[in-house]
Computed example of a mutant assay.
Amino acid sequence: MSTPTRRSLREQGASVGVPARPRDAPVPSGSTRGARRGIGRVLADILLWVAAIAGVVCMVLVMLAPTVNITLIMFRTGSMSPTIPAGSVAVVQEVPASEIEVGDVVTVDRAGDLPVTHRVTSIAPGASDAERVITMRGDANAGDDPYPYTVQTVRVVLFSVPGIATVIVAMGNPYVLGGLTIAATTLVVWAFWPRSAASRRRSASEEPG
C-alpha cells in the first residue's frame, strides 16, 4: 500500500468534487489572523502553566518550612565554590547535631554575625549528648575555619540551585513585585477574556463546513 502524497490527496479531493485551491492563490487574511491568535493563546497557556507551577512550588516551600524545618539560604560569597558558587540558593533542613557526619555541608548560626555554610571536617563530642564540637572548611579555602563551632542543631544543605539568588533578591523589590503583578494580571485577563461576536463569526466562517 502506497503512502498518500500531497499530489494524490489533491487529486482525490478533485475527484469527489472538492475544488483544489490554486498553488499561487493568496492565503485568506482571516486565516493568518486566526493562526496568530492561536499561537498567542498557546503562549499564554504556557506562561500560565509556568506561573501556576511556580506558585505551587512556593506554597510547598511555605508549608514545609514549619513542618519539617526546611528553609532557603543564599550564598553571597564563593567560599564553597565550585560545589556551591556565589549567587546560589540552597535548600536546607534543620537537624540535630548528633545526626551530621564528616563531609556534610551545613549552616551554623553565629551570635552577632552572619551564619556560615561550610563542609564539616571533624566532629567531637560536646558537653552533653545533644552537643557536638565541629570544625568546618569552605571547599574553596586552603584551611579550616579559624575556630570550631559548638552546636546542638545545624541546617544541613539538601541541594542547591546556582544563579538564582539575584532573582530571589529582586523579587523582594516592590517595583519588581508590582510589575510582575501587573504582567500576570494582564496575561490572565487576556487569556480568558471572551472573544467578541464578530471574532466568533469569523472563526466559524474559517472552519471547513
Rank of each mutant, 00 (worst) to 15 (best):
G78L: 05
S79V: 05
M80F: 05
S81P: 01
S81T: 10
P82C: 06
I84R: 01
I84G: 01
P85H: 04
P85T: 01
A86C: 06
A90I: 02
V91C: 06
V92N: 06
A97V: 12
G103M: 13
D104N: 15
V106D: 01
T107Y: 07
V108N: 10
V108S: 06
V108I: 13
V108T: 04
G112P: 04
L114I: 09
P115S: 07
P115H: 04
V116F: 04
T117Q: 05
T117H: 09
H118N: 02
H118A: 10
H118P: 08
H118Q: 08
T121M: 12
T121Y: 11
T121H: 11
I123M: 08
I123N: 00
G126W: 02
A127P: 06
A130T: 02
A130R: 08
E131G: 05
V133G: 07
V133K: 03
I134Y: 03
M136D: 01
R137E: 05
G138P: 00
D139Q: 12
A140C: 07
G143T: 14
G143D: 15
P146L: 07
P148W: 05
P148S: 04
V151G: 09
V151K: 06
V151D: 10
Q152E: 13
Q152L: 04
R155I: 02
R155S: 09
V156Y: 08
V156K: 14
V156G: 06
V161R: 00
P162C: 04
G163Q: 04
I164N: 00
A165Q: 01
T166R: 12
T166V: 06
T166I: 09
V169R: 03
G172I: 00
Y175L: 15
Y175I: 14
V176S: 10
V176T: 15
L177E: 03
G179D: 08
G179V: 05
L180F: 03
L180N: 02
I182S: 14
I182K: 14
A183L: 11
A184S: 14
T185K: 14
T186P: 07
L187V: 01
V188D: 00
V189L: 15
A191S: 15
